[in-house]
């Protein structure tokens, strides 16, 4: 539980960080909150020769409104998300989900950029970003590009991030006024990853679901958008049969690993239940 030796860099700008990443190549890793990387280093499962600490880059912090989007700097901590009135007001599901991440100590250090960029299927924010239709800004030597969260995740710890690129910010469209939302997460205890979790953002019209997006956490090697399940509820009043159909459609795309949280069958089963509960709670909140 003692890391090997490494060189420490603390660039002051994104350009400097990118330059370091390019120059040092695959021996270098950017360091955000460190809550995934540092434990891996302590177990020597990760042995980067260079750590590029992003804490010195002021431009990577902060939450701002840009038209109909909320732009969140990659180095914004989960705690800062929780403290933001703007998030609580316009994107309350983000607030709700951030509260379910780990514990206060972790949330003081853990960043949203690290959470979404690491490609860990256990992290909560990726599925949420897919549900909200967010996009990520990636900056590298060749400049900046934007990529939809839904296109970012390729496999466990494999993402669209190219060598030498840093995820610098997240842009999230503000959901329609009066939308309903819920993040249902089943976990064994505080600090645990989800056994299964579901994010729902929907709008209701005349007692029926008008729009709906459903995201799933930790039930596959990547976060998932449950498109068929979402489609199944459009135009319904979320009656029992519809909920059952949606849960089944969501379960059908799940492929969790068996682990100490339970066997595959259980994790898929409760994944369906999380979808059902999130839909019901979201509908009850919609105006």
């Amino acid at each position: 539980m003692i890391p090997g030796s490494f060189n420490y860099h603390r660039p002051a700008s994104v350009a400097d960080a990118v330059k370091l990443l390019v120059d040092l190549g695959e021996d270098a890793r950017p360091l955000a909150g460190g809550h995934s990387l540092v434990p891996m280093m302590k177990l020597r499962l990760a042995t980067p020769a260079h750590l590029i600490d992003l804490h010195g880059i002021a431009a990577l912090k902060g939450i701002s409104r840009n038209g109909n989007n909320l732009v969140i700097g990659a180095m914004t901590t989960q705690h800062e998300l929780l403290a933001s009135d703007e998030v609580a007001k316009s994107m309350p599901i983000l607030h709700e989900a951030a509260l379910l991440i780990a514990d206060p100590q972790v949330r003081y250090r853990g960043t949203i950029g690290g959470n979404v960029a690491n490609g860990d299927p256990g992290n909560d924010m990726p599925a949420l970003m897919m549900t909200l239709g967010a996009s990520y800004r990636l900056e590298g030597a060749g400049g900046a590009r934007d990529i939809a969260a839904a296109d970012f995740y390729q496999g466990a710890y494999f993402t669209a991030l190219e060598p030498g690129e840093i995820l610098t910010s997240i842009s999230v469209p503000v959901p329609a006024a009066g939308h309903g939302y819920a993040y249902e997460k089943l976990k064994r205890k505080v600090g645990d990853y989800a056994t299964a979790a579901a994010a729902v953002v929907l709008t209701m019209s005349g007692g029926k679901v008008a729009t709906c997006a459903i995201g799933l956490t930790n039930v596959h090697e990547t976060p998932l958008l449950a498109a068929d399940a979402a489609k199944a509820v459009i135009g319904t009043s979320l009656d029992a049969a519809t909920l059952k159909k949606a849960a089944a459609a969501a379960s059908a795309i799940m492929a969790p690993a068996a682990d100490a949280r339970g066997p595959v069958e259980y994790r898929k089963h409760v994944g369906g239940i999380m979808v059902t509960r999130a839909l019901q709670r979201a509908a009850s909140r919609a105006k």
Partner: peptide, 23 residues
């Protein structure tokens, strides 16, 4: 817990249940 080939699979507080004040 050990798996069927003798690997101990509960080597950290992630999987070895240590309740917090919340639980």
């Amino acid at each position: 817990r050990y798996d069927e080939v003798g690997n101990v699979v509960t080597g950290s507080f992630m999987d070895f249940f240590m309740p917090t004040a919340v639980e």
